[in-house]
Amino acid sequence: MTAMLEVKGVSRFFGGLAAVNDVSFHVNKGEILALIGPNGAGKTTLFNVVDGFYPPSRGEVLFKGQLISNRKPHQICKLGIARTFQVVKPLQRMSVLDNVIASAFLRSKNKSEAQDIAVETMKFTDLYDDKDVISKSLPLGKRKRLEIARALATRPEMLLLDESFAGLNHAELNVSIEIIRKIKEKGITIMIIEHHMKVIMAISDRIVVLSYGEKLAEGTPAEIRENPAVIEAYLGEAQNA
């Protein structure tokens, strides 16, 4: 398998604080890689570095062998990496359909083409019935799914999902897991940040564990479950809670 994304020795400092410190890993084409770690471990910061919102303080990020850590978010999106936000950012005063159309324009020449992509994406993410709803008034579960739909409408090769399952109820959770599986079947590589252990163990091919900005472990779900360092830093903590 070839590496879709390579993170090489990436550090990101905020003042004196190392939010991410010398982290290296890669994501293979077509797999689901989960990024887990306790709160404040630097997961979202790492996403922001990969997606171009923050330049890395040290190290570099390569996408399909091409250096992307000096590029802006919109250029990285154009190259084929789309993301969702942990704190959802719908285009509030636009309808759900218009939200998705706005992102579908990236790969379409005209509005009717963008509309086709948008409708297809909304059916795929089970949002089509809500197409005329103003996104401000969507419930959280659907807003999280709108984030995914919007990212998918840019026709990415790789998807970064930042806590797309947080705050969902049981039924919504199952819908979203199903959608992630379908995205994988389409051949889209996924990197996902998640706290929901059941979800992570069920869907991911490999897991990278971050703690205090550093990489603690990397492996299959089974390996991670057995790893004593991870149990101490993360799962142990979760069990006590």
Binding site: F53, C77, P90, Q92, M94, A102, L106, K111, T154
Partner: peptide, 26 residues
């Protein structure tokens, strides 16, 4: 306003970071 430009303008108004991450050169 009814074209791609219009959608991009409104996307920028609603959330510049989201717009940027959707591939819009804000």
């Amino acid at each position: 306003v009814e074209s791609k430009l219009g959608y991009y303008f409104v996307a920028i108004r609603e959330d510049q970071d989201a717009a940027e991450s959707l591939g819009i050169d804000t």
